[in-house]
Design a protein around this nucleic acid. Sequence first.
RNA 1: GGUCCCGUGGUGCAGUUUGGAGUGCACGCCGGCCUGUCAAGCCGGAGGUCGCGGGUUCAAAUCCCGUCGGGACCGCCA
Length: 582
Amino acid sequence: MRTLMCGEVRDDHVGSTVSLCGWVARRREHGEHLAFLDLRDHTGVVQCVVDGAHDLRSEWVVRVTGTVRPRPDGTVNPQLETGTVELGECTVEVLATAEPPPFPLDERAGDVDEVVRLRHRYVDLRRPEMQRNLRTRAAAIAAIRRSMDDQGFLEVETPLLIASTPEGARDFVVPSRHRPGSFYALPQSPQLFKQLCMVGGVDRYYQVARCLRDEDLRADRQFEFTQLDAEMSFAGQEDVLEAITAAVDAVVRTVRNEGIGEVPRTTWREAVDRYGSDKPDIRFGMELVELTDLFSETGFQAFRAGSIKGIRHAGGSESTSRSRLDDLTETCKRWGAKGLVWMRVEAGDDGGTTLVSPVAKFMSAAELAGVADRLGAEVGDVLYLVADDWIRTTHVLGLLRLELGRPPTHEGGLRFLWVVDFPLFEDVDGATGRPVPAHHPFTMPHEEDLDLLDGDAEALLRVRSQAYDLVLNGWELGSGSVRIHRGDLQQRIFDLLGISAEEASARFGFLLDAFRYGAPPHAGFAFGVDRLVALLLGEENIREVIAFPKTQSGTDPLTGAPSELDAPQLADLGLRQVPPPG
RNA sequence: GGUCCCGUGGUGCAGUUUGGAGUGCACGCCGGCCUGUCAAGCCGGAGGUCGCGGGUUCAAAUCCCGUCGGGACCGCCA
């Protein structure tokens, strides 16, 4: 049907007769007997010269047969890959007519209401940007498979209809027709199955896996997303980090034609301490500065707190109005802070600096001098201080740091970071004294922290796990851990978590059973392909790299999902609708 | 569960603060002219439930309340 792609026509083809197929991108008529037709397919656009184009319209699907010829002097278009040539003496065959597109398909389409784009996604996908995104995504996944295959990993498919397990995210569920009243769950990840693969001698497993979580959507979160999921036998943390780094490096080389180099590492504690986040964006500084000790004997009531930290917005004073400061204070309160102390750094009478703040009068000269010194205050800066417990202080300042300093997605390069030594428990329940696991209950504690498992709540919170995250520009790309493969240690963790033998057996008995038949030590990881591809393309939103995404409220404007079931379908599944609560 | 922002011909926007006739801009669409354009150009035309409902008012795109849709974020996402 076609002999060449639109974007492929070059000087080499001059003189040959070719047939091209595509969509009419644009048409420029110059009277009865001359019109230019820009024909588009996914490879690009080429100009066809036709004898009048009155009967052709935008986005019609056509087959054009003509002779490639050089463009006349002065009419070369350097904007086009095909700009030195054109197709002449064209005959045009209309393969399909088309209504005018619902929105412009040129570079202006980026401004169009996303619902309109999603409702007509099939049109949106024709745009060069979307074609680029789809094709980059496919290339990234191909690079992942190549890398994993080369490293001796075996791709194994695991089921989509599985048993629900209550921990973690909310499950999507599917009613069973054969057993009315019973439900399958869709996997939040293939976690348990990949561990079964290890017991099954797969040795190195991977899967480009769809994961489903029924949680609220965000710019970087969809109900369903794609992960590179991997697990390795007879391997520890270093082996996993190395293998995953290689796979990510392969992707970046494919997409960006550059390696990722040595990926720096930080501990979880250091990340939170310095950036107020376990997924720090290290493209910019503005680090959290420790101030607690400066206020150990303060008369300022609000600063009698466990943790006081500050950040410095260099040169921010001029662009930060009083009402902006009030807004930021309110925002910090919404984030959980008791308040926000801001200080403008102004020139002092003695030639030094002075901190101007509504609360400066409650602080001693030594305290103010200490703050200015620690934060490296210079005239024109704004300093922001928060006092609370360590968790809240770092959390709020971490968010404020992003609000004040985060560069746009496409700036600042790619700053990967491994965050290691996550805590095993994120909290200890005040009422029961039971620790709350930070990861899943099969996460291996640090060998040297095992003694702490016998300690009090404070000791438990100090237990580090062999769990690690990969972070890119402030996005959590993925996480993994070394798994517990020994029954006795697993039992101890279950005991600590207050999971009875019956409960453990009911929830993941099949995995514990499997471990009794010879489980190799193993460790694994998974990272989000949508997020990685989006960041590599400079997109702020993973919907841009997903062919058919959902809106933030979880609907699909194209298909109308989710939709209601009719009565016979419900009856077949043994379901009955009840009125919505409220 | 919560905070903030947005909704005006097919598309993008201005108009909303300070109520006064659906007023305007750009693109697209339809018709005409046009033989070297390339976001072609020129002339003409069509196209509107100002998201929806209620309220205030002599009068509402504009003010108030509610609601729907969308987006960003907090919570949530082991």
